[in-house]
Every structure is written in C-alpha cells, then in structure tokens.
Design a binder for these strands. Structure first.
Length: 444
RNA sequence: GCAGCAGUAGCUCAGUUGGUUAGAGCACUAGUUUGUGGAACUAGGGGUCGGUGGUUCAAAUCCACCCUGCUGUACCA
C-alpha cells in the first residue's frame, strides 16, 4: 500500500483556548456546588440563557458603538449578526427587557456559564471562560449592592479562603463624578483616560499612575502610553483626594452601614476601584486576592481581580421605555479555581475503578456477574476494556491508579473464590464472590 | 496592537568558530516473566530541528519575513 503524505489536521488549540483536566474540573464542581447552595439560600433564581445573542442585543449599547464587533466572536446567519456572549450581564438585560411584564420586581437571578472574548489572552485569562453572575434587577435599594458583597464573600470562604486571602473593595462612580466636577473636567474622553489611569494605581503605584494622568508613561518594555494631560494642580488634587480614603459618597456610606448590620468586615473603601466600565452608574465593587499566584513555570504573575461588579441603572432601560435600575456581581470561576489550586492543597477524591481482569473471553458472563455485583454496591468498577495479556492489564490498572484488580481465571473458578489484589500494597487475598464488595470497600 | 524572551521526539531539554546518518532522560512498544503493575535490564519505534524564502559546496546553527507560546504593556463590556 502506498502511504500518501496526507496533510494532517492540527492538534494545536486555537489561541486562548485550553483543555481542562479532571482535577481542575472537580475543584470547579466543588466551587459550583457551593455557589448554587449559597445562591438558593440567598433567594436567587437559577437562569440559563443561550451562548449566542444577536450582536445588536449585547453590543448596541456598549461604549464602542462604532465597533460593535470588536472583542466578540461573531458570525452572520442569513439575516443577522450573532455573537457569542462576552458576559452574563448583557444577556440578562436582554432577558429582563423581553420578559419585563411577567417578572417579579425586583428580580433576583444567578447564572453560570461560559463566556467568550475575542482578545489577547493573558496569564490565567483565556478567550473562553466560566463566569458566575448574580444580579438584582429592578431595585434602587442599596441593600442589594451590600448583599452582593456579603454573598460573594460567603462563597469565597465556603470554597476554603479565609478573610486574609481576599478583600472586597468598594467605591462609587459618584465619588469620581464629584471629583471631576471639582476639577471642572467635562471631556468624556479625558475622563475615561483618567479613570483608566486611576485603575492602575494598585498595580503601578502612584508615581507611575501620575505619569498617565499627565503627559504619558513609558513602560519597561518600551511601550508608550499617552496620558490625560492634566496639569500639576489637578493631579495633586486627585492624588490627595484618593489617598485620603475618606468617603464622601453617600451611596457607599450607606452600604458600609449595611455591612455593619450584616457583621461583614472584610471590605475596604478604595476610590481607585474603577472597573473601566462605562455603564456603571453607582457603587462598584471588586474582589482581589491577597496572595501570590504563580504560573506553570513558577513565575509570579499579575493576577488581577477575580470578580467584581456594580450598579448599572441604565442598561436594562436601554431596551425600552421603562426605568429599570439594577446591580450585579460576577466571578471568573476558572481564575478562582486556578488560584484555589495554588492556595490550598486540595485533596480531590478521584474514584478510579476496580479492574476485573479478563483471562478468557468466553468467561465474559462470569465477569459481568461480578461487575454487576460491584456496581450494585456502588463500587466504581470495570472489566478491562482493552485486549491483551494479564501483564498489560495490570499495567493499565496501575496507570489509571486503580485501587485493586480482581483475578478470576481457571484456578479461581475451580475454587469458587476470586483473587483480589490490592494495588497499593500488592497483597493478594482469596475472596468469595459474594464477599468481594465488602472486602473492596475495606481497602478503598 | 506594542515590546522582551522562546520554539529541536508525546514531555523536559542538550546540540555555535556552519561540516558524516540530529542526541539524552522520561514516556511509548516488545521481550527477560505464555497468570501479575509500580523496580531493573535488553531491543525497538518515533523528528517537515515552528514555517517560508535567502546566503553557502554545505544550515538545527547565519540573515529576512511570517506563525505560535510565555511575560509585560495597551485595550477590556
């Protein structure tokens, strides 16, 4: 036979996508089950919306009106542009607008699902990731905002973090609005440049951030970023206002009061929390981890926040002629799981099957009888699924970390007892078929 | 997008004054053991040296461009 040189399909993954293996998935399952439990306790409804939406519905009201396609994965069907959702808030706004009359007001829902962003991936950031989102729609009551912070904190602690491991930071758009009024800055473009610069205070420090407020900054790779062109007096005022950490924003003060009532203390008023989102209208929150996160090469990486949110009183009402204030928070679950795996040495219980070795295919009925008995006792088990000699079967069992193998060949069939081999200790024992389940449970 | 570093077997990597047939460890396959894994030994398979073009008698090695990855930075709903 002539071997054609076929062009082989690529085994590489598209940029920014990853395979996720069992350990990560099991920890993720653990996190998700905690979330569901807590959300139901807090009285939220569980919702799922499709991965695709009309680009219009999730893009139209974004700041980048000229480039609704930027940053999202989109395609055109016969008629319309569709996009994979880039978060769970925009689809929620669409859902609420569509079902506005039927829904209770306020409407509390939570959602878990993958979201996609067509942008350059970074450390721990991919183009597909799992997000958790909880929102209060249809209320101006700031207790909602406060409760979101309490709730996210409960989730993190339930997942094994303690209060030193994370901080909920809170600020308000109103705080910076006031500041800009004082500075007499009205240009929208300048304001967003300033906000972006302030957002970086944490990471770069004040000296570098101030360059971004003024002329501009050259980073260590040599790349230059243009600044907001403020004068020195303006920069000084911004710096002193933010550094004073005194909150003159009424909405935040009210939330802090509610925190007290909840006995919630692990928060920090931090006016440098910006979140860059132009649709936020009031209080904003961000959750940061306080421990170092390393990549697979052992390098400490800039991990950033694992969640955040805020009040967006105009997003839903963009869809129609109704007033619909809302507030929400989300967590990047894959990033949380990634961090959790480093913080805690999770002992994930992976159940591996007991392997029943095959000596003679004609005895398949005997093997299946044993298999059914084990499975009826809820023991993970299988008949060796491949083909080959006993040695190969043992190697397989070892490779999958099976706890034990069952040998039931000619000799055993004669005596009516199977050989049970514990793969951890290597010890073998002769066990009656009806006692197998109990004996296996002892060694699991 | 911009910048720095990197890309040689499935994985981790060695391999420069350019020079036979490109190496090692781990992993894999077979055997030593036709009913016994994790150890050892023996043998074996596996490579478009990221891609394309160029320089040269000769390129994994030098040059150009491109692709991909990591890190930082920008943007980030």
């Amino acid at each position: 036979m002539v071997k054609d040189k076929k062009i082989k399909p690529s085994k590489e993954l598209p940029l920014g996508f990853v395979d996720r293996k069992e350990k990560e998935l099991l920890i993720r399952d653990f996190v998700i089950s905690n979330i569901k439990e807590i959300m139901i306790k807090y009285g939220f409804q569980y919702l799922e919306t499709p991965s695709f939406e009309y680009t219009d519905s999730i893009g139209k009201f974004l700041p980048d009106k000229d480039r609704p396609d930027e940053g999202v994965f989109s395609f055109k069907d016969e008629k319309n542009w569709l996009s994979l959702r880039y978060d769970l808030t925009a689809p929620l706004a669409r859902y609420v607008a569509k079902n506005y009359l039927e829904l209770p007001k306020p409407f509390k829902r939570f959602q878990l699902g993958s979201v996609w962003r067509n942008e350059k991936p970074g450390p721990g950031r991919y183009r597909e990731f799992l997000q958790f989102d909880a929102d209060y729609v249809g209320t101006k009551n700031l207790q909602a905002d406060a409760e979101l912070c309490v709730l996210i904190s409960e989730i993190l602690e339930k997942c094994g973090l303690d209060s030193n491991d994370y901080t909920v930071k809170i600020s308000s758009r109103k705080f910076t609005d006031k500041l800009f009024e004082q500075l007499k800055i009205k240009s929208k473009e300048q304001i967003s440049t300033i906000l972006r610069a302030l957002d970086k205070v944490d990471r770069l420090g004040w000296d570098e951030a101030k360059k971004l407020l003024g002329v501009g900054r050259k980073d260590k790779s040599g790349d230059y970023t243009k600044g907001a062109s403020l004068n020195n007096d303006q920069i000084k005022l911004i710096e002193s206002t933010l550094k004073s950490k005194t909150c003159n924003s009424e909405d935040v003060l009210e939330i802090l009061k509610i925190f007290q009532a909840y006995n919630f203390t692990n928060y920090k008023f931090d006016p440098s929390v910006i979140r860059g989102l132009e649709y936020y209208t009031g209080p904003i929150f961000e959750v940061n981890l306080n421990f170092e996160v390393k990549n697979s090469k052992g390098q400490t990486i800039q991990f950033g926040s694992i969640g955040g949110g805020g009040r967006y009183d105009n997003l839903v009402s963009n869809f129609g002629n109704f007033d619909c204030p809302a507030t929400g928070i989300s967590i990047g679950l894959d990033r949380l799981v990634f961090a959790l795996m480093q913080k805690k040495d999770f002992k994930v219980k992976v159940s591996r099957p007991v392997v029943i070795c095959v000596f003679d295919k004609s005895q398949i009925k005997e093997y299946i009888d044993i298999l059914n008995k084990l499975r009826d006792s809820n023991i993970s088990s299988e008949i060796y699924p491949g083909e080959g000699k006993l040695k190969k079967q043992m190697e397989y069992a070892n490779k999958i970390s099976s706890p034990a193998v069952i040998l039931y060949g000619e000799d055993e069939i004669k005596s009516g007892k199977a050989t049970l081999k514990n793969l951890k200790t290597g010890k073998e024992s002769s066990v009656k078929i009806e006692d197998l389940s109990n004996e296996i449970k002892k060694l699991l």
